[in-house]
Amino acid sequence: MPELPEVETTRRGIAPFLEGRRLRGIEVRQPRLRWPVPVEVLARILPGGTVRTVERRAKYLLLRLDAGTLILHLGMSGSLRCLHEPTTPGVHDHLDLVLEDGDRLRLTDPRRFGALLWTEGDPAAHPLLAALGPEPLGEAFDGDYLYSRARGRRQAIKTLIMDSHVVVGVGNIYANEALFRAGIHPARPAGRISAARCERLVAAIRGVLAEAIELGGTTLRDFHASDGRPGYFRLQLAVYDRGAEPCRTCASPIRVTRLGQRSTFYCPRCQR
């Protein structure tokens, strides 16, 4: 599933292709995605509109036009491609945003868990975005904030930092990696983590996500960037998907358990 670094990588790939360009319209071949694509509304509103900016909120891409905002989610296995030449769509190529000169932004989504929605209001107030926590790379997410959200909680710290109401975009891969860097056991109760260790964990989350973005995300099964290339952060993984392999720091075997129904990888010696 594309996580925050993969979505940010996609945003950086499509922004130069879209920003400042006028739309001819939209071609929808399969409107039944996670939620129905508002085909009639988009067919009426999009022609002649200009894409002003391409932004990201959590794992949602926001294509801002003067009349409103397209809210796009890649779902479990979606991807976007920038096309300069006519290409016959495949069975999973569900829609194209068509630019004035014929260039296209194509959404491919084999599992159809993605979404393309429209809002004329502030997208931050949209029901899908309104209750989201702060961005992990933004100023609002710091050690004091995480400590305040963790105090008194018995839930595992890993499930806390994966809660999008607490902080967005810390998916399973990056939660495992950040906790390893911070030296914190993923099952440790959140309320038993000191303010200093929360500060260390915030720094680890920021570092892991920033590095993953620079390396193009983490390809494990489905994700490719908008230019078709895979992400390469997988080459840097310290614990995720390395069960029974030696820890890169102390050589102890990496252990695997399940927390919140998600595979959890950790070093029993380095993480406490």
Results as ranks from 00 to 15, higher is better:
Q30S: 07
R248S: 00
P134S: 08
I14R: 15
V51D: 02
A238P: 00
T119M: 04
S148L: 06
R112V: 13
L46N: 01
P253Q: 03
T87E: 15
R197T: 14
T88M: 10
V39K: 14
I161S: 12
A225Y: 01
S252K: 03
R234Q: 04
A251N: 00
S252F: 02
H165A: 15
H92Q: 12
E19N: 12
E177L: 15
F180Q: 14
G102K: 06
P230V: 09
K158I: 10
A182W: 09
R206W: 10
R21H: 11
L62A: 05
P47C: 09
A196K: 15
L74H: 07
R11G: 08
E40W: 03
I173A: 07
L105G: 11
R24V: 11
F113D: 08
T87Y: 10
F265N: 01
R262K: 02
R197A: 15
V170P: 12
A196W: 12
Y174C: 11
A140W: 01
V91E: 12
M162F: 08
Q155V: 01
G114N: 04
L117N: 08
R56V: 05
R229S: 08
A244S: 02
R181S: 13
A187M: 13
L99S: 12
E6M: 07
A130S: 09
L132A: 02
Y232M: 08
